[in-house]
């Protein structure tokens, strides 16, 4: 009972100060929308070993059509101007805030809402190739279903 009272107090407090008191996972593998003409090109002077995907991606740089304006795709369904990419977002990224969700059960799962406001993440945290995030996620669905 004492613990429950403590939690009620804390929950009321943290509701008012969620951004200050919340801590969370250290990394989020996040599906985001990126411009469709984003792609990798080999870094100048770097040999690319085609057989090794990891070393290949480590020697590539991002490029895109710089004459084309960044598309405003924030409210659209997927179209020709944007596709889904996977980015790992560290929890200490400036602009990332977390807010708890009050659930009816399974409290230990710690479900929360993550808000991103101009959060800057270096391109090294892009998983694989740009605009391939959906296939990466689908690739893991069978494995993830095992857990469920």
């Amino acid at each position: 009972m004492h613990m429950r009272v403590l939690h009620l107090n804390f929950f009321g407090l943290t509701n008012s100060l969620p951004c200050i008191l919340a801590t969370t996972s250290d990394f989020f593998t996040m599906a985001v929308r990126t411009r469709s003409d984003l792609k990798f090109v080999p870094t100048e002077g770097s040999p690319v070993a085609e057989s090794d995907e990891l070393s290949q991606s480590a020697q590539l740089n991002l490029t895109w059509d710089r004459d084309r304006p960044d598309p405003k795709f924030s409210t659209k369904r997927p179209g020709s101007d944007s596709q889904v990419s996977l980015i790992v977002v560290p929890r200490n990224t400036p602009g990332l805030t977390v807010e708890p969700i009050e659930c009816g059960g399974a409290h230990a799962a710690g479900l929360g809402t993550i808000r991103l406001r101009n959060a800057r993440v270096p391109v090294e945290y892009l998983v694989g190739s740009p605009n391939s995030g959906l296939s990466y996620v689908l690739h893991n669905f069978n494995h993830g279903t095992c857990r469920l």
Binding site: A22, T24, S25, F28, M30, V32, R33, T34, R35, L38, N61, L62, T63, W64, R66, D70, F73, S74, S82, S85, I87, V89, T93, G95, L96, V98, E99, P100, I101, A109, G110, L111, G112, T113, I114, R115, L116, R117, N118, A119, R120, V121, P122, V123, Y125, L126
Partner: peptide, 24 residues
Amino acid sequence: VAAIEPDGSAFILNGEKKWIPNGK
């Protein structure tokens, strides 16, 4: 949305994710 910075060094993320385990 992850917009790319002009120099290509970083992404700028804006949006909201919900029901994330270990999120709170």
